[in-house]
């Protein structure tokens, strides 16, 4: 695979209330086009930035730990490859297994920032405590497919990408946000009837619930797991409207 001379700008800084307030540090390294951003971060840690903080676990898009912003877009570091960055193809879900036919001696530059709308534990590591609290508020703790048919909401890996992409999560701290509301709908659809539907509906139908959504659909665009939280939010809203108008749910489950 081709080697790329990669210039990485990293927004660094100690624990703080938001990504803002850090400073950008620039590093240059030679990276294989097949490397993921996790490989890049490890190389930085092994070389010029031994104290660099970031989060990761599984390396294969299941754990939802390594989400960050790559040139302003929410990405899983494990799915994003150097070749993809060099080819300018960040719109694709993953760069793995693709040959971008980079020229010999290719160069690329990329800016890495922690997720937006999350407190920062340090450098690129976001603090998920508030986000997990919102997931708890809608009783999102579903066990995937308890022998029942699974729906795509169960693909949510709670990586926080949608929360970072949403402009309203940034400004209304109480707004539940895309992933918790998508999982609230999933909870309502859960055939095993785990958790309290009344609590989920109450959480969704309050000023900081579905009514704060303004159809930006950046959540859906940012989701690395194909959950489509935007559509889930609209369905949840339609459900609340039908209930209020007294329409029967019909044969829907």
């Amino acid at each position: 695979m081709a080697e790329v001379e990669l210039t990485v700008r990293v927004l660094r800084g100690p624990a703080r209330a938001s990504a803002a307030g850090g400073r950008y540090e620039t590093y240059t390294l030679r990276a294989d086009a097949g490397w993921s951003l996790l490989d890049v971060l490890e190389a930085l840690q092994a070389g010029p930035a031994p104290d660099l903080m970031y989060r990761h676990s599984c390396h294969h898009a299941s754990c939802g730990t390594c989400a960050l912003r790559v040139d302003g877009r929410e990405r899983l570091a494990c799915l994003t490859t150097v070749g993809q960055i060099a080819a300018g193809r960040l719109g694709e879900r993953t760069g793995h297994g693709k040959d971008y036919r980079l020229p010999r001696g290719a160069r690329a530059a990329v800016t890495l920032e922690p997720l937006r709308s999350f407190p920062v534990l340090g450098d690129l590591a976001a603090d998920f405590a508030e986000f997990f609290g919102k997931l708890d508020a809608v009783e999102a703790d579903l066990v995937a497919a308890r022998g029942e048919e699974a729906t795509h909401f169960e693909h949510c890996i709670t990586c926080g990408a949608c929360m970072s992409a949403c402009p309203i999560v940034a400004s209304d701290l109480e707004y539940l946000g895309p992933a918790p509301l998508a999982l609230a709908l999933r909870g309502l659809q859960d055939p095993t009837k785990t958790g309290s539907d009344a609590r989920r509906l109450a959480a969704a139908d309050q000023p900081h619930g579905v009514w704060r959504c303004h159809h930006v659909f950046e959540c859906t665009a940012a989701c690395p797991a194909g959950v489509d939280p935007g559509q889930a939010l609209m369905e949840l809203r339609a459900r609340l409207v039908r209930r209020r108008l007294g329409w029967r749910e019909g044969a829907r489950r």
């Binding site: 938001s18 709308s117 407190p119 940034a170 400004s171 930006v216 665009a221």
Partner: peptide
């Protein structure tokens, strides 16, 4: 979870920050 205590602040500048964003965001702005 034993994570940080930092409390973030509301940031409405995100409403008008289209860097890296897509059509839906432009429509919203």
């Amino acid at each position: 979870m034993s994570e940080g205590e930092a409390r973030r602040r509301p940031d409405w500048r995100a409403w008008f920050a289209p860097r890296g964003r897509r059509t839906g965001m432009w429509a919203f702005v």
